[in-house]
Design a binder for these strands. Structure first.
Lengths: 192, 192
DNA sequence: ATACTCATGTAAGCTGTTACATGATTCT
DNA sequence: AGAATCATGTAACAGCTTACATGAGTAT
């Protein structure tokens, strides 16, 4: 089958982690990978079908009252594809879309108060994300510690951003040139 | 005209900042907003046309040798649309696609060394981004300080990630449960 | 009884990338 | 003279979101 998308690998991984139906995957994504790799049902269900058609997943139907659920598991090929992706060394996608920062980039035409408001809004957003992550605390299990580690990453990263915003708000309120020390450090590192 | 996309606002902002042609915008994007809001020529040129058709930009043709360049500037409507976006309070887009973290999420099936290798690859990627940002040092200008501030954000953010990876590599190498202190803090914050 | 969650999907549409194409201009 | 950069675009496609649709099971 043709090249798998990153989201296809997400689906494979979720199934190996014991998620068995599309709905199961959707629910776990919402409280875990969503914060660094989103996937909507409109993607998950077609992806399951593609992976089945490509022989990486096998589907069986389980009765559930009157209804029948589609339950998936990895084939040997699927297992192999997942492992190859995990241990492979192709370039890692990293993409960011940060509208707050984009506004900030253009804030020179704004008044001091308007600029501070942009930073405040940015901070509020990251605080909301932080709350979402906190609410999604994973149960700690020794055999599944990496879910926990990526959860800590979310807390740390957005915590860093919130602190950065707070610092910038202070600097802007006092009319100070922001982050002078960091600027010196960066420039020093460059000339090393 | 119908609702403007975020990238449309990027184009408006770039033009108000003195970028006048599509090529000009493309070049600046590559060394500045790219790190938090990418935009390819395949988007920029059609967007310029749309904005002109919508009356937010006016186009004039400047001779340049034999060739004619399309030079854009903001109309009053364009100016207004930009300012409304900058000061408006609608939810800010924040999206992340972090393949390294996605691999890490599924690293429980890997050997210790393979897991460490995932973290190392992730760190290498952020170090490369960091280099890209450093190379793109903006000239500091008192009347354009926010471009500088968002540049510092990039250094700070990716610097944080590199440190985080390094710490995790150490913890994994020593078989320690990672980030125990942060976990306690987070849990304490939750129950406050 | 009613509302919520479980469960599965489809269709339309938007955003964005990649790859290609063209030709002028400037630099070395 | 040749290479790099300036400059402008287009077409095909990938990826993803939103909104919608349907209906069963479960809790209050």
């Amino acid at each position: 089958m043709s090249e798998l998308s990153k989201t296809a690998h997400l689906v494979l991984g979720m199934i190996r982690n014991g998620r068995r139906t599309g709905y199961d995957i959707k629910r776990l994504v919402e409280v875990s990978t969503r914060f660094f790799w989103a996937a909507s049902p409109g993607q998950i269900y077609p992806e399951l079908k593609r992976l089945e058609a490509g022989g990486l997943l096998s589907r069986s139907e389980e009765p559930h009252g009157q209804r029948v659920r589609s339950v998936y598991s990895l084939t040997d090929d699927g297992e192999r594809a997942l492992h190859e992706w995990l241990t492979g060394s192709s370039d890692l996608t990293f993409e960011l879309r940060n509208e707050g920062l984009l506004k900030l980039f253009f804030a020179d035409g704004l008044s001091a108060n308007e600029a501070i408001e942009v930073v405040r809004a940015m901070r509020a957003e990251h605080e909301a994300i932080l709350n979402g992550i906190r609410k999604a605390t994973p149960a700690y299990r020794a055999d599944r510690k990496f879910g926990y580690i990526t959860w800590l990453y979310g807390l740390g990263l957005h915590g860093w951003v919130v602190d950065w915003c707070r610092q910038l708000e202070r600097d802007l309120a006092e009319g100070r040139v922001p982050f002078e020390r960091e600027a010196r450090d960066a420039s020093a590192a460059k000339h090393r």
